[in-house]
Nucleic acid binder design. Structure first.
Lengths: 343, 343
DNA sequence: CTGAAAGCGCTAACAC
DNA sequence: GTGTTAGCGCTTTCAG
């Protein structure tokens, strides 16, 4: 099981070698690396030259062991193929870099078991901290049940009470999306998406319900899908196209852009015009759906901002173990109106 | 610059704590972890219980330091937003896992400077090995100029002479793609893509030239683009649509699927039919282009296989520092015929 | 300002 | 089988 790699042949040069080469004590070399201001210019120069000449690369593992600190943080992502998560990673990386931390990624590839595997790995590796963007299911996340060595902050999932987290307000997003459709003149709305075990989807639906309840003479129908892919959308589109025109919704709220994409495509093929006959709005501002023939209106989630915030929370937790209080940062999605809901 | 994270508050339980708790020596605890067969069932049981009760998580850093080994490898990727590279990561992860190694990812986000930054980081962290899929430009890769502590194998780039690498044969891919077009009846081919500083693109063009040279009465035109995005393709599509029908190529070989996608879209808008008027083939089997209204024929690169191979080479290099010989594995792209070149 | 020495948490001989 | 001990490469007091 735990088949380890053997160290590679060449033995790397150690600090002691540098010290010998420069004719100083080992501690002095350490000082030029960590507290150069406390070393005389002359020694500094000499040691530095030795470092260069020998090609010395400080061993961070040893350093971390001795100093009890590390500059590595890890981000465990449920699906790096989803541009939303990749955006988070970008934001996290930028923020980490600005704070002198290094970010590595782990891809769970939609396999929730891997969340735990990687969490354990990084825990054992004594990362300074770890970020995790799990599958936002309603089931109690396994990883939350454990106490971890490293500080961890969750993204895209409500981990209140157990730790820091940053989410976007999906209920509000659903509300705003529905409102946009209503303002565009739609009266017979349809919400489609699934599975509802995904909290964000359930929340988006609730938001849509609220918007509809607040409006007069607007109805809301629900059509569940099994997944969130274009194929699911195409099925919905076909079903809709098969209906009589007056039995058709005039506004569709798709739980994801990918679904919206499928719907628009299927509708187009069957001669139903978007946005003339039916207006469609998606959710996620997913790059994969950017190239739709009819540009898709959508609710954009601030992925990069989420990543940045998460790192900020993490750093606070790492640096102020005493005073730190867990926080739930809730960001707001933004409406991006494009052609699919235009006039 | 090197602003480190401070260790978090709670001090984790060490092996010594476990030993004390179980009433055995520290070395014994180490044994139950690394050589359980050499420990009496009774002690084993007791130590294991102590480990559980105390929530002991072995410190891999210390372990790596003491043992001189590590099970972590890293994959530095030029662009995780590109599904081709993500496929490599998937393959690498699977292969790594089967060999008891753990894979972490680093995203350069199309920033070549980051390649070096991450390489240095992982070098200092004394990773067991590192994989790198850089920007395949013709410029001499900076990272190749240095001797690294860790073993490194390159993906998607020819690093012969300096280390192991695994690539796909782009020249052959271009050849096969052109041949496919010719067999589909095309006589006036157009190759479009760019910039040519990207080696794969130049190679694909060379392959197309070879196929055309081998065929009778087939011409090949070249239309360079600045980048490899759908927008570049749309420009090409518009230019083509603006031509008189008989001045138009009847077969287009796009250097990437994204370009092909843009071309098909632009052509469609202008009333030029794909594949009836013009056949189009792309390259990469990019998921982002899968949802095109006209499914795009393409040359698929075996990303996952590349990742697996790379890990195999890396492992050999790590385990047999003496006998290991650098190897260049060249994989073959596969034609995927879809509608855009259909009849 | 520089050197010596005591660990950091763990592995791997080597003894008992 | 189990305990003891000497490092792994580095940081960091603490004397000189």
């Amino acid at each position: 099981m735990e088949e380890l790699a053997e160290s590679n042949g060449r033995r790397s040069v150690r600090m002691a070698d540098v010290a010998a080469h420069a004719g100083v004590a080992l501690g002095t070399v350490s000082h030029v690396l960590n507290h150069p201001e406390k070393v005389s210019p002359h020694t500094l120069e000499r040691v530095r030259r030795s470092i260069d000449e020998l090609g010395f690369v400080p061993n961070s593992r040893a350093r971390a062991l001795a100093a009890g600190t590390s500059s590595m943080i890890a981000f465990i992502v449920i699906d790096l193929g989803n541009s939303f998560f990749l955006d988070m990673a970008r934001g996290a990386e930028l923020e980490a870099q600005e704070r002198g931390l290094n970010l590595v990624l782990a891809n769970c590839d939609m396999n929730t078991d891997k969340e735990l595997v990687y969490l354990s790995l990084f825990d054992a590796e004594r990362m300074a901290g770890v970020l995790i963007a799990p599958l936002p299911s309603s089931a109690d996340d396994q990883w939350r049940l454990q106490e971890w060595q490293s500080d961890v902050v969750a993204l895209n999932v409500d981990a209140s009470g157990r730790g820091c987290c940053v989410t976007t307000d999906d209920e509000l997003g659903g509300y705003l999306a529905a409102q946009h459709l209503i303002e565009a003149g739609c009266r017979r709305l349809l919400f489609t998406g699934g599975p509802f075990s995904l909290l964000p989807i359930a929340d988006r639906y609730r938001g849509a319900q609220r918007a509809v309840a607040e409006a007069d003479g607007v109805s809301l129908e629900l059509l569940r899908t099994l997944q969130t892919k274009p194929a699911d959308g195409r099925k919905v589109g076909d079903a809709l196209a098969a209906r009589a025109a007056d039995a058709r919704p005039d506004g569709v709220l798709a739980a994801t852009d990918l679904i919206a994409f499928g719907i628009i495509e299927a509708l187009g093929v069957q001669g139903v015009s978007v946005p003339d006959d039916v207006k469609v709005i998606g959710y996620d501002n997913n790059r994969q759906a950017w190239e739709s023939t009819v540009p898709i209106s959508t609710m954009a989630q601030p992925g990069e901002e989420m990543g940045r915030h998460a790192v900020r929370l993490l750093v606070d937790e790492i640096r102020n173990p005493g005073s730190h209080e867990h926080e739930h940062v809730r960001l707001t999605p933004t409406l991006i109106a494009r052609e699919s809901t235009g006039t």
